[in-house]
Each structure stands twice: as C-alpha cells, then as structure tokens.
Write a protein that binds this DNA or RNA. Structure first.
Lengths: 90, 90, 90, 90
DNA sequence: AACGTTGAAATAGTTC
DNA sequence: GAACTATTTCAACGTT
C-alpha cells in the first residue's frame, strides 16, 4: 500500500530522506569551515585574502594565466595601469 | 580604428561607462532607501520588522502558484500538509 | 620560527589545509547528493519537484514564529492579512 | 482614525510605500545593468573580466596595492609562486 | 568601532 | 549554449 496519487510514496520518501541526511552532513561541514575561518581571523589573518589564496590553489595554473592576460588586456584597452605591476615594485 | 591588443577599446569603454553610470544611480537609490529607513526609525518604528513586512508584501506579489498541482501531489505522497494554497484569489 | 614576511607561515598553512580538507569532504557529499538525485530520476521521479519538496520541508523545520506578535501588528496596520500562522501547533 | 493597534498606521504605510517605490526603481536599474552586460557578452566580451575591471576602477589605487601585497605575502608564506608574475612574462 | 548576522549580488554548476 | 538553480561572496545593518 505505498501508492498515493499514483506515486511510489515509499520509494520517494527514501530518496528524500537520504538526501536530507547528506545535506545535513554537508551543512555541518560548512559550519566547520566557517569556524576555521573565524579562528584564523581571531589569529589576525585576513579571511578575504585567505579565500583568494585557496581559490588560487584550486585553479589550474593555465586558468589563472588566461584570466590575468585577459584582465590586463581590458585594462590597457581602457587606459588603466595594469594592476599586476602594483605589488611587484615596492 | 581603436584596437588595443585586438580589443575594440572604444566599444569596451562605452559598455563599461554605461554600466558605471547605471551603478551610480543604483547606489544613489540605495542611499535614499537607507535615508527613509533612518527617518522611520527616528519616528519610532522598528526597521527590522519593517524590512520583514516589505519582504512579505513582495512575496505576496510574486505568485507561487507554479507547478502547484504536481508539488501538491508529491507532498501528499510524503504525508506533508500541502503548502498553503495561493489562497488569496480563488 | 617560520615567519615569511612577518607572517606566521606554519599557522597559515595549517588553517588553509584544514579548510581544504573540509571542502574536499563537502564536495564529496555534494557528489553523493547528485548521485541520489540521478538515481531518483532513473526511477522516474521529477528531480526539480523533489528539490522543491525538500526545500519546503526545510522551511517547515525552520520555525518562523519569531517576532510574530509585532510583525502581525504591523501587518494589520497596513491592512494586510496576517502571515499564515505557525498554524501547526496551536 | 489612523491608529491600528497603537501604531501610526498612515505614517508607517507612507514609509513602506516610499521604500517600495525606490526599490522598484533600483530593481529596474539592476535589470538595465544586466542588459548591458548581456549586450557586451553578445559583442564577444568576457563579462566576468569586465566585472573585475569595473571593480578595479572603483577601488582606490591604495586599496588595490594593499590587497595585492597581502595576497602576495600569503602566497609566499605557503610556498606558492606569486600569481602576479604569471601574466607579465609571456 | 569590530563583531556577527542577515540580505543581496555574483559566480559556479546542472539541466535541457 | 542558454536558462535555471545553488552556492559562495560581498556589503549593510544592528549590536556590544
């Protein structure tokens, strides 16, 4: 007796509950990550920069270069000083 | 013609400047909104609650009748109360 | 001690690596969830609707009874129907 | 007769409606901006990079340098090659 | 005035 | 590859 409105109710319920369980675990991990960031902040690190670093570590070197070349190109097209030079020369 | 490194510089500049202009206007409106909230607060209203009311009124407008039948079916299959009906207009 | 340019490098590395590990686990869970959806889809369920159901069930749980009295008051002041009551438990 | 439940209803309504009007205009501008980006995309520009450029133009030169110095510092602390060099040398 | 909290904007990912 | 959804990031607000 597991049909409600033509739907295999038990089957559906099982799927939904499995997903909900996994999402709970996922949310818990997200909370953990937030905590680590908070701890890092408490130790004086700049979390925004940390996020950038982590993103960079995840990206392929190739992607990074591609993006930077394009950014540079657009900046020059607009007559801006390329940002890449800023940090280099001090 | 104005190519910088293969980029149609004038075209790009035009897009960028149009966007920047629009964003300025948008920022000005945001400032106006903040002002109104401040004034309301000065008159003794609770701005947090006001925000909730405004959100509710917006949700009211954005009618959520979409796919209601099927959604309803699935909800019953899971033994949930069907979500509050559009209720207003029928 | 491990200072690079005034930065506690070891400390930073530890934070970054902890985060990266947690994000890996999180990504693995996301993959699991996708799998379950795929399986459900293979069983003939409409995953888009399933997502809506799951969202609804989550909203149900997150009880919105907060500040209800005052909110209600403001709503009546504006001639709105008061938002659907928590309804379940009274 | 403008008190409902002790609230100066007319006053409140006025505030709420002013805000709603302003938010409508703001939403319209957001739509305009999206349109311009879409048009730019249609002309072959990379909108993600455009957004970066616009952000750079908005930031003070000082802020840009500060962020980049810090990013560089963190990267070196982690033994990464500084990303700023990537685009320069090809 | 820094902190956490919340809400909006932007980016990434998925589906068709 | 276009549209939709979900996640992530960023900015504003109130709070302490």
């Amino acid at each position: 007796m597991s049909d409600v409105g033509g739907i295999a109710a038990e089957r559906l319920r099982s799927f939904v509950e499995r997903i909900e369980r996994l999402e709970e675990e996922k949310a818990a991990l997200a909370a953990d990550i937030r905590e680590v960031f908070a701890e890092a902040k408490g130790s004086g690190f700049d979390t925004k920069i940390m996020r950038q670093v982590i993103k960079l570590r995840k990206m392929d070197r190739a992607d990074v270069e591609e993006q930077e070349t394009l950014l540079d190109l657009y900046c020059r097209a607009l007559g801006m000083r390329e940002p890449e030079k800023a940090a280099a020369d001090d």
